[in-house]
Design a protein around this nucleic acid. Sequence first.
DNA 1: TGCTGGACTTAATCCAGATCAATATATACA
DNA 2: TGTATATATTGATCTGGATTAAGTCCAGCA
Lengths: 266, 266
Amino acid sequence: MKSSDASEDKSSPKAAIVIQSPAGDKVCPHNNRVSCASCRLSELCLPIALNKSEIQQLDDIVERNRPYKKGDHLYRQNDGFKSVYAVRSGSFKSYVLSDNGQGRVTGFYLPGEIIGMDGIASKHYQNSTQALEHASICEIPFSQLERLSHQLPNLQHHFFAIMGNEIAKDQQVHTLLSSYTAEERTASFLLGLSSRFARVSLSPTRFLLPMTRSDIGEYLGLTVETVSRIFTALQRKGLVDVNNREIELKDIDGLRGIIGSNQAKS
Amino acid sequence: MKSSDASEDKSSPKAAIVIQSPAGDKVCPHNNRVSCASCRLSELCLPIALNKSEIQQLDDIVERNRPYKKGDHLYRQNDGFKSVYAVRSGSFKSYVLSDNGQGRVTGFYLPGEIIGMDGIASKHYQNSTQALEHASICEIPFSQLERLSHQLPNLQHHFFAIMGNEIAKDQQVHTLLSSYTAEERTASFLLGLSSRFARVSLSPTRFLLPMTRSDIGEYLGLTVETVSRIFTALQRKGLVDVNNREIELKDIDGLRGIIGSNQAKS
DNA sequence: TGCTGGACTTAATCCAGATCAATATATACA
DNA sequence: TGTATATATTGATCTGGATTAAGTCCAGCA
């Protein structure tokens, strides 16, 4: 609505950019003392489908470290695999580095999502993962998670489901990358973000991108320039409103239509 | 099996194109009575890391159905998820269909590999999967696998590893699709097949492709024409010898070099 | 307060791979 | 066994997005 609120006082409000925290939260979103039982993400994260005492057992193995600053690494490619991580606040990106130093982003992670499962099989993380903004994490040592899963069938079941979900998502991305145009990929990316923000009770139509255009391009297999151009084009079509990192989706169905049009041609 | 029944007017006489069977195997590779304990794929499949009695318990929940003919479906997109499947012989492809009927291949599966994990989370398969040639399968009802995993920590651990491996592989494909050229993708695809054939004791340098050029193109995000042209180009460079479905890799390091060259530019 | 370097945008040109088209070869099937 | 239908190859042309280039707009900070 008021698109000019930033122009009134541009010098002071730094804390205001923490957009991942729904208004009304009593505690700082990066607070590291919140328990699984009281965590507002428990419905998305591992505790779902566990009963009170089971949640307590999970809570006992979770390690809540100090918050991460923008750019801090959770782990680096080839580090020994030790834990999976649940995002509590903020956001992360995973990327692999080719020999020339050019990276390719393999994933973005928002609150309630699980990071690090790519290391389970080989016992080494396959990518590097760093915070895109101030962020906090629940670290779950994997050997303890396995032990607990063995005791709690519900937890085993749920972790199988979490991994299965990751596999299903990755296959969708495969299809996206192998057959969608730049515009379709970008529209799909925005819609995906939108529903992930909605999951954590944030607006599905107005949000701040935690990542750069370059990150998006690397993730979608496009260049920065193309991402930028597509944003402009989508804006001209009246589907979105883009203002630097600030995104407003003005016509969700229109965006869906862009993806659908891929399949519309006889 | 071969003892012919009284009814001979059924059209039955086809079973010769089986290339995946190492010479000297005493039993037909599609034999559906082989137990996990005696299966020559046990070192790749679920039984690995289980002891004798554990393997027996796994064996008890495995269902060995009749072999699949080329084109037969294991399951179709949106079917209710019930089982994961281990390929015993032959090969399969998974694909999703866009509304216009054009498919995109999401994966190929060789002996010892596990199919169907994309359905675990949503309880519905996310793709359709069909045999690329005469093939046989071990069906493992997932609810029983979960129950057994709960009793056997080794099995739980191993299935977590199998799923983690799938996730790691999918992320490599993500990188492949988002940043490799057509030639790099194709070289990488051939090398990948090569090591998967090696895993099942087949030649890593001479093999038959079970899939069409079109399947390969859909998987790699390329057109048939491009795949065909790249094959010709690789042959001209002396890296491979292509004869219809018959492939010989003549210079593995050369092929690796093609992929490496992606990263060589300063 | 002005400097510096990263992030973003826009435009001009180029090229890898798509598309279109024609033909050749293999495989299935009557 | 021959014919129909998938599969594969090859060439000519087109085009979406990369590349190159030249900026603008910031936020961080000495």
